[in-house]
Design a protein around this nucleic acid. Structure first.
Length: 236
DNA sequence: TCATTAAATTTCT
DNA sequence: AGAAATTTAATGA
């Protein structure tokens, strides 16, 4: 159960906002942010309790989502190795009232608000990375908002699968890239603001066109064809 | 075009 | 077996 110090440091160095830190600093960070293994399906924080910590996902998968009053779920992001999430009074990587749930057994560590603030003050490179991370997320959300407003489910789904393939893709047979996640149709629906029935039908149609392949809860996509399909929206 | 409802069927545990 | 997930079809906005 206890993990070697060497491994802890390795995982810390993989956290995207820490990539510029030297070994000595990493050890300091390691000292103040203990690591824990969290089983799949654990909800790390819910609507009511505000986390005053920043979580660092060393290895695993975490889904961030929002739930409406009638229980409908909107998935905002799926995070993989090296990602950071959570919010504190001074620093927020996302809004409040967000749930974070592990999708598989994951290695996480948490950093308290005061330590986060010290890090940002003492290490400019961390602050810079932080801003880059925030910028990227704002941009991604704006693009997603526009797609929700203007594009149909089919295109939103293709776009989602390409994004997931960029993030979690591993090579598959032929032109296909497999998304290394276990995803139900309901999961996908919660990411494109649709329903599981519509996703089911749309996936079947895309399979017929050999744009995607599915089996069990795995999805593979032909990124090249997906790219040309998405590009045809507004001819230059 | 797509959410909704309903129902049948397949796949997981 | 029982639960969860997937698929198909009909209907209406």
């Amino acid at each position: 159960m206890p993990i070697l110090d060497r491994d802890q440091l390795f995982y810390l160095s993989q956290i995207n906002i820490f990539t510029d830190l030297d070994r000595e600093t990493l050890e300091r960070v390691n000292g103040i942010s203990p690591m824990a293994t969290v089983p799949a399906g654990k909800v790390l924080f819910g609507a009511d309790d505000s986390p005053s910590v920043l979580y660092m996902l060393k290895r695993g998968r975490v889904r961030l989502y929002r739930m409406s009053d009638d229980g409908r779920v909107m998935t905002l992001a799926i995070l993989g190795d090296g990602n950071v999430f959570g919010s504190t009074a001074s620093v927020a990587l996302h809004s409040r009232d967000i749930y974070a749930e592990t999708m598989e057994s994951s290695l996480l560590c948490a950093m308290h608000q005061r330590d986060v603030e010290h890090m940002l003050r003492d290490f400019p490179s961390v602050g810079l990375r932080f801003m880059q991370l925030l910028s990227a997320r704002v941009t991604a959300l704006e693009e997603q908002l526009e797609r929700l407003a203007h594009e149909d489910v089919r295109k939103r789904l293709v776009q989602l699968l390409t994004t997931l393939a960029d993030q979690f893709g591993v090579p598959d047979a032929g032109p296909f890239t497999r998304i290394n996640l276990s995803l139900t149709h309901a999961d996908l629906a919660s990411m494109v603001a649709s329903t599981r029935e519509t996703v089911s039908g749309t996936l079947a149609a895309l399979s017929r066109e050999s744009l995607v392949r599915t089996n069990r809860r795995q999805v593979s996509i032909d990124r090249e064809r997906a790219r040309t399909l998405l590009a045809r929206a507004w001819p230059a």
